[in-house]
């Protein structure tokens, strides 16, 4: 089995030809990777993530995927939790259950096994005791755990997380990132997370993809990527 899960060649991403955000992106996501994508606010991290997920079409270049069963890998997407509308009266379990929707089949309802798996994923993220609590009443860290459980419920080959610890206090941030580290170590889950927080990358990522101020991407081992001269390429004034 190939160890490459995703490989991009000369990829350009953005919103239309005039809204090009990043270009010339060549990088690989390996199976079992723990990759942190970093860059200043507004540098195009979320745009890159959405393109990898297939939510945005590449402006040019290619994305090759090597899934276990052939075709496109199964993505477990964890969006920014603020993007979800809290007016929806859903419990933590109902949110986690959504991860099963792609596997249930069209116009069919979830079965007992789907509920069991959603419960198991909530347990894995430490949220099973709050399964029947309203999602909107949970704290930021608890919501994030539920969204990770939802992504896990889809039985993904790769977890993609958009700013998973944004706005959290230190202990919640630590708990979330340690949960992701455990998933990567114990289940060999491939984890790609986007963040603008340098200390999160420093503590947890194995490899780093850095968005530079000229709209390109450099990828490498953490030790090399956090060198001051490399970091300056991302944070220097345009």
């Amino acid at each position: 089995m190939a160890t490459e899960l995703i490989k991009t060649r000369k990829l350009a991403v953005g919103y239309g030809p005039r809204g090009k955000v990043l270009q010339g992106i060549d990088f690989t996501i390996e199976r079992g990777d723990f990759l942190g994508v970093m860059g200043p606010n507004g540098s195009g991290k979320t745009t890159l993530l959405k393109t990898l997920l297939g939510l945005l079409k590449p402006l040019s270049g290619t994305i090759e995927t090597h899934a276990g069963g052939g075709g496109r890998p199964l993505f477990g997407y964890v969006p920014q939790r603020e993007s979800l509308d809290t007016h929806y009266p859903l419990t933590a379990l109902e949110v986690a259950l959504m991860g099963r929707f792609g596997r249930i089949g069209m116009l069919r309802g979830p079965k007992k096994a789907d509920y069991q798996l959603a419960h198991a994923c909530l347990k894995q993220t430490g949220m099973d005791a709050r399964a029947n609590k309203p999602y909107r009443a949970l704290s930021g860290g608890q919501k994030q755990r539920v969204l990770i459980a939802r992504a896990l419920a889809s039985e993904p080959e790769i977890l993609l997380l958009d700013e998973p610890t944004n706005g959290m206090d230190v202990s919640s941030e630590k708990a979330i990132m340690e949960l992701l580290s455990e998933l990567q170590k114990e289940k060999q889950t491939t984890v790609v997370f986007v963040t603008h927080l340098l200390h999160t990358i420093e503590r947890y990522a194995h490899r780093v993809a850095l968005i530079t101020s000229d709209g390109s991407l450099i990828v490498g081992e953490k030790s090399k990527m956090l060198a001051p001269d490399v970091m300056a390429r991302a944070y220097k004034e345009k």
């Binding site: 997920l53 297939g54 969006p79 929806y88 939802r150």
Partner: peptide
Amino acid sequence: ISAYDPDMGRTLGI
């Protein structure tokens, strides 16, 4: 899923 989280829906193939 189409109303609550369309992006998640798309990644699930809906």
